[in-house]
Amino acid sequence: MADALFWAGGGLAAAGALLALIGALGVLRFPDVYTRIHAASITDTGGATLMILGLCLISGLSLVTLKLVLVWVFIMLTSPAAANALANAAYSAGHTPWIGSFRIMQDNRKGGSR
């Protein structure tokens, strides 16, 4: 039983690491600030959640699990706020999204060409 939990937890942690890697690749490869924030948030949410879940399974029911859950809650509080602040700063600094600004998209829809 303990062995099964260990392997399940290890598998989840590895899956989380894989998501983090995908997120890092996205940060490197995506074209503009907004899409990069999107990629980075995968690392924060998906990657961290899976890893913490895996570690919870490995540690079993103990004080460590409670601490891990608290860490998770903290990440869930901070990372969306940080992503929002980043996007906000990029918008204020005048970065136009790669797919075009909202107004340009509307114009394109009217004009029908892009």
Binding site: F74, L77, P80, A81, N84, A85, N88, Y91
Partner: peptide, 16 residues
């Protein structure tokens, strides 16, 4: 004021 989200999150976080 663009920082509403930040402000709410900070209000939660600072005491913690």
């Amino acid at each position: 004021d663009h920082h509403v989200v930040l402000r709410v999150a900070a209000k939660l976080l600072i005491p913690i």
